[in-house]
């Protein structure tokens, strides 16, 4: 299925430093998968390996496989640009393009990644994406205003709309609500719930309640000793991870005994 991602023995490094090691996981299509774990356990690094964003950091490296759409995205003949078009990303801090209007922000991926569309098709794509991101009603009368004029929560939903506009199969979210207030967080969680029907979502979160609320599956990553790379401790349906985890560390983390 197009939306599923399987990693085999995935490891990532920053120069000499091993960030994550030996992670094998199968992310199920059209489900929300949450990655939890204490700070520095490598969950963001893992996420960035899934659409080849990790390699943008100077000195960064990966080994192992990430199978998406039937092929290893790290195979030499695969273009990182194609991978990123199919596996979109929403970042921790909202990062709309400052000189672009709201509408142009949403259509940026379509316009700049070389897809030829006429004006009305572009407008349709903008509206569809903004509706999916539950932002349409708030911005429909000011589409030409700069993206930066919106509130933080609106900006983040704008970034979600922007990611949706290029019609990816998978959306990776790197702590998308950590800079937002509870009301905005609520809106984004509602959005995720709707998106599940058509998209696969992987979300990194520090917020245990959020993981419990939004996700179908949860993976717990941990750096067992300082200096060690982060490893996947446990992975399974969220209901099971949160109620009867197999590992003591998972239980300790979830019940708030550390991290």
């Amino acid at each position: 299925m197009a939306g599923s991602i399987t990693t085999n023995n995935l490891s990532a490094t920053f120069g000499e430093v091993r960030a994550i090691e030996g992670i094998s996981i199968e992310i199920i299509a059209n489900k929300v998968t949450a990655l939890i774990g204490p700070s520095g356990c490598g969950k963001s690094t893992f996420l960035r390996c899934l659409n080849r964003m990790h390699e943008l950091v100077p000195g960064a490296g990966t080994t192992g496989e990430v199978i998406w759409d039937g092929r290893n995205i790290y195979a030499p003949d695969v273009d990182a640009t194609d991978v990123r078009r199919g596996i979109g990303m929403v970042f921790q801090k909202p990062n709309p393009f400052p000189l672009m209007s709201i509408a142009d922000n949403v259509s940026a991926g379509l316009r700049l990644a070389g897809s030829k569309r006429n004006k009305s098709a572009m407008e349709e794509a903008v509206e569809r994406s903004l509706r999916l991101a539950a932002l349409w009603d708030e911005v429909k009368n000011k589409l030409h205003k700069p993206g930066g004029s919106l509130s933080g929560g609106q900006q983040q939903r704008l970034c979600i709309a922007r990611a949706l506009a290029v019609e990816p199969d998978v959306i990776l979210m790197d702590e998308p609500c950590s800079a937002l207030d509870p009301a905005s967080t609520q809106k984004i969680e509602d959005t995720m719930d709707k998106l599940k029907d058509n998209y696969t979502i992987v979300i990194v979160t520090h917020n245990m309640q959020q993981a419990g609320r939004v996700s179908d599956f949860t993976g717990f990553l941990l750096t067992q000793e300082s200096g060690e790379p982060g490893r996947l401790i446990e992975y399974g349906p969220t209901s099971k991870i949160f109620t009867m985890p197999d590992h003591k560390e998972t239980e300790n983390y979830i019940t708030g005994r550390f991290g």
Partner: peptide, 17 residues
């Protein structure tokens, strides 16, 4: 800021673009 470079690249926009 690098966050803008990342935002653009993550949309599948080529590097030159």
């Amino acid at each position: 800021p690098d966050t803008l470079r990342e935002a653009s690249l993550a949309l599948g926009i080529p590097r030159w673009r």
